[in-house]
Structures are given as C-alpha cells and as structure tokens.
Design a protein around this nucleic acid. Structure first.
Ligand SMILES: [Mn+2]
Ligand SMILES: [Mn+2]
Ligand SMILES: [Mn+2]
Ligand SMILES: [Mn+2]
Lengths: 218, 218
DNA sequence: TATAATTTTTAGATAAGGCTAAAAATAAAA
DNA sequence: TTTTATTTTTAGCCTTATCTAAAAATTATA
C-alpha cells in the first residue's frame, strides 16, 4: 500500500517517462510536482527501497514494472472518477480534475471494479485520455495533433493534451468537444495557425490551440 | 479547512457528546479513536486553538457550534457516500463503512451537493442513520430500541445501533432490514430475550440483538 | 482526612514529508 | 583542459501526528 504522497510521485514519474526517453531527472520531477529537488531526492530514495523505481545517483530514475503498474492503477482510478463526475454528477469537463485528484487516493479495489461496471466500462475519460485496465495496460490509439494535419484534411477530436480550465472553456465557446468533426480549411506555415470548420462555423485558431487537440483521421 | 486527523477527532467527539451528557473525557476520546490519551490531549489543545471545541484541563472538552457543524458535515458526507455505495454500486450494507471512512474526507462542497441530488436527497443512510442537512441539522426522529418494546407491541425497523459486519449478516440471515415489520410475541424479563415475528417466521432473539435495533411504532 | 488508584497532562522521541542552505557531482563554456 | 554554470545530493531544521514514560491532578478508598 502506498501513501498519498508516494502515489502522486509515481503518477508524476509515469507521465514524465511517457513524455521523454530515458531516465527521469530529479529537477523534472520537482517541476512537475511543484516541490523542491531535495524533497524529490528523499522520496525517490524511499521509492527505490520499495522497488517501484530504480534510481542511480545523479543519473535519474525510471519506474520498475511494479512501479508502472501502481502508477497506472492510480491513473485508472483518477480517470474513472472523472467519468463518474461528468457522466453521473453532471460536472463540466473543466471542473473535475481537482476532485479526481482526491478521489484517486481512495483505496478499495472492489470500489473501482464496481464503479467501472456502473459507468459501463468506459475506455476514455472526459478529456479523451485512455483509462488503463485493471492490470495497468493501456490500449494504444492512433491519434495525432490537429497541428499535424494539413489543408483539406479532416478528423474527429478524440482528446485534449492540456486540460486546464481556460483551454476547455475556449473549446466550449467554439463548440468543440470529444467527438466533434473538424476540417482544416487553411494552414499558415509561417506561424502554424489554421482556419478550421466546426459544424457550420469557420474560424481562425492559433498554433497553440492546434497543438493541444488530439484528432483521429480515418 | 481541517485535516483528515482533525476531522476524525471532531466526528468522534460529536458522537460521544450525543451518547453522554456533559463534557467528553480524554480517555473516552482515546478509546473511541483507538489512540493514546496523550495524543488526544495534544490534538484537543490544537482544536481548542482553532475554536472548534472548548477544553478545560482535566475537565474534558465540548464542541463549539462551529465544531458541531464541521463534525455534522463530515458525517453528512460519510452517510451520503454510504447511500451511493449501496444504492448505485450495489454494495451490501455491511461492506460500505470503511470505504466511506475514506470518501468522507474528500473536500468539495459542490461534489456533495451534486451527489445529494444524484441520490435523490436521501434522509437516511443504509443503516437507518439520519443524514444531516448542509447546515449540519438533523431532523429528530422518534425511534426506540426493540428492547424497549413489550409483548404484543409491533413496529418497523428503522435503523441499527451497532453496524459491524457480524451483526448485519445476522440480520440478513433473519431477513431483517430497514423497513422490516417486527412484532414482539414474547419477552422474558429475566434476561431480556424475546420471541419475535418477522414475516411468517417466528424466532428467539437475545437482549443484545434487541438492544441494537431501532424501531418506529405508530 | 490521609492514602491509594485512576485519569490526564507534560516531556521527550519518532516517522513522514517538506524546506533552506551548503556541498558535491556533472555539464557547459572559455 | 581549466573554469564556470547547472544539477543533484546532503545536512540540518520544521510541522503534523503519533508514541512511551514520567509527573501532576483528580477521584476513590480506607
Ligand atoms: Mn484529471
Ligand atoms: Mn482527465
Ligand atoms: Mn459508516
Ligand atoms: Mn452508516
């Protein structure tokens, strides 16, 4: 059993590992967790003792299989609770993260099994992120960023990269959500901006927006 | 905002106050929380600083209005989550307490407001205990213990006093649950045992059982 | 009322998790 | 290849929540 602090470290390291190749640096973890590098060193040494990650002084850390599974399980809980909050309690998708941050630390495998069933065994959370199965496995999906599409390509929005409130509220204003069809009408190669079509609306979006929307093109 | 430990102390003191008259003793709190009296003294001094209880050395403590409201709110969350677990996730009434012990510490008034609505604004938890409203008020109910009933009296089971697994499973075996009609066919004044009728079944129960079932007689 | 038993508090330790400041190792620049 | 800058670790301290052992206050008993 892992403490709340330990679970949060494992989760952060798991996400960092998936974003970069090789061992995760102490500073990167400190940044991600808004804490100090010295605190990270302490915790990482403790987690190495518990065999959930391997740590080499000055060289960084990487999760063991046990660590990956533990982290994925916390992420599974987080995302299932987010589905619950949106689907059952009618929260908006920009309001659920902080509450899920707390709920993810409730320990009960039976609870999560039943919640999963109650929600109809969802595959994705409200932000389009995949929900790991009970073994910690995530089925790979072929998605690309909207910014990678070219003129005249189209697809369906399947997720958001960032999910802070400002961004999600912008998407709402533009009527973009998971499942929305988007066509690229124009793309400016100088700054990466685009003109896109959403429903009957056509409008301009910046590169920053396009880089935070995951699309599936078939 | 109160820590998990502080919330648990407030809850325990709240329950102790409702069971006895006058200030709550340090030892009583230590017993209820399975901790040491010295730990209780420390925490009680801290909670007195925070104005949620009044504490006089060697004389015991009693909750202030602020303390009562805070405690009632934790209890409200606990009981609403228990309703959720039983009504929505199909847990059995003897399985939900430990999970609710964790869920009750999730901080979000919006979450509880929506959960309350989702559950249809329930008045009682799965064990028949009343759910305080958002202001911490509990509507008084006229219930008495089955052991207080006499021969030929009858009523409806509206709650259980103890709710440990063994007792709840005994009740299941005898088909007694919240809402079950029970008639007292006989009562032995020597040991307080009874013969009762539940549905078509008639059987013997000990005083201990009768002292843990709340009844409403109309 | 003096003595004994019980309850409660204080003093001092410990463990988890975090911080600052200084030291050590590594990486970058000259 | 030195020197400088950056990263990482160590050392020492803090807070919260616990504990044990000893002291103090209260209550019960003789
Ligand atoms: Mn989230
Ligand atoms: Mn999410
Ligand atoms: Mn309970
Ligand atoms: Mn209950």
């Amino acid at each position: 059993m892992f403490s709340l602090a330990e679970e949060n470290y494992l989760k952060a390291i798991y996400h960092l590992e998936s974003k970069t190749q090789g061992a995760v640096s102490t500073n990167a973890i400190a940044d991600a967790m808004a804490t100090k590098p010295s605190s990270v060193t302490d915790m990482v040494q403790k987690l190495a003792d518990k065999k959930v990650l391997s740590y080499i002084k000055y060289k960084g850390t990487s999760l063991t299989d046990k660590g990956k599974k533990t982290a994925a399980n916390v992420i599974r809980k987080h995302r299932l609770w987010e589905v619950f909050l949106v689907e059952k309690l009618n929260f908006h998708w920009d309001e659920v993260h902080d509450i899920a941050e707390q709920l993810e630390h409730v320990h009960s495998t039976e609870l999560i099994a039943r919640l999963d069933k109650f929600l109809g065994f969802p595959d994705f959370d409200p932000h389009g992120d995949p929900i790991p199965d009970k073994h910690g496995n995530i089925k790979p999906t072929e998605k690309k960023l909207l910014s990678e599409l070219n003129k005249n390509q189209k697809g369906v929005c399947v997720g958001v990269k960032e999910s802070n409130s400002d961004f999600l509220q912008y998407l709402d204003k533009k009527h973009i959500t998971i499942g929305t069809k988007i066509s690229v009408l124009g793309k400016e190669f100088f700054d990466g901006s685009m003109v896109i079509q959403v429903g009957r609306d056509q409008f301009f979006i910046s590169k920053k927006i396009a880089e935070n929307l995951y699309m599936q093109t078939n």
